[in-house]
């Protein structure tokens, strides 16, 4: 425990941080790795994909908003279990989750993405991009699929996904933080723990740099999502106001 790692954080502490985050991640994932492996080749049939494609735009948007909101609730639970997160002030807890929850959902999505046939788990089975055609935002859907494929190519372990999710969430890049120093200290420890695990697992010395280089894409995807939501809302204000989950509206509207 007395051996010192970067920035004089003891290796024992880094290990405790890593173990806490990995446990929090595993306890709050919607699907276990085993469940995902069992489902991996259960794909929506041609008829089912056609059925999604023929849905009215607002109906599919609503279905996606419900799925995203469900996934976000698990991310909130993940955040709460990270040691140090609940010690941040309430303002910063809300800010970090508001700006980072969708990014974490997208990181977690790579667990439920099959890069061999470019399909993602949606409503119980895997399906390709064409399943989301009726949303009317091909650019966003295609960018999300590209991101998932690119993250999968890094072949991250469950531990690395956990620590990367925490690093994405606990970020000093978010504007209006009240205690940025406190967030920074926590973020640094998470990065050191991530670095330590990646050095252990990967032969590729640039693996961590490659992973970090995906963060701007995450941010761009979230901006694109907000823009698409605004465009959708202009055409279907009633759907958003009445039928979308209140948490989704609170976070993105």
């Amino acid at each position: 425990d007395s051996q010192l790692g970067p920035n004089n954080v003891s290796m024992g502490e880094l290990d405790r941080i890593a173990q806490n985050i990995i446990k929090s991640h595993l306890e709050t994932c919607q699907y276990t790795t085993e469940e995902l492996q069992q489902l991996a080749w259960q794909t929506h049939s041609y008829e089912e994909v056609k059925m999604y494609q023929s849905k009215p735009r607002d109906v599919l948007w609503q279905q996606c908003a419900i799925q995203i909101t469900h996934a976000i609730q698990y991310v909130v639970e993940f955040a709460k279990r990270i040691s140090g997160f609940m010690e941040l002030c309430q303002n910063d807890q809300i800010l970090l989750l508001k700006s980072g929850c969708l990014e974490v959902v997208l990181v977690r999505m790579c667990r439920a993405f099959n890069p061999l046939n470019n399909t993602v788990l949606f409503e119980g089975k895997y399906g390709g991009m064409q399943m989301f055609k009726a949303l009317g935002c091909d650019d966003l859907v295609s960018a999300v699929f590209d991101f998932a494929k690119s993250l999968c190519s890094l072949q991250l372990t469950e531990e690395e996904i956990a620590l990367f999710s925490a690093a994405v969430l606990i970020s000093t890049d978010r504007p209006w933080l009240m205690e940025p120093r406190k967030v920074q200290k926590l973020q640094e420890k998470i990065y050191f723990a991530l670095q330590h695990i990646m050095q252990k697992n990967h032969m590729d010395e640039d693996a961590l740099a490659k992973l970090i280089s995906r963060i701007p894409t995450l941010s761009a995807l979230c901006t694109l999502h907000t823009e698409e939501l605004q465009a959708f809302q202009q055409l279907h204000p009633e759907t958003v106001n009445v039928l979308f989950p209140p948490l989704y509206k609170e976070l993105f509207n």
């Binding site: 609730q73 709460k80 279990r81 303002n91 809300i94 508001k98 948490l247 609170e250 976070l251």
Partner: peptide, 17 residues
Amino acid sequence: LKEKHKILHQLLQNSTS
């Protein structure tokens, strides 16, 4: 911020299940 994010605030306040 709490006022504008009542649901998120409530989720954060709920005890971890």
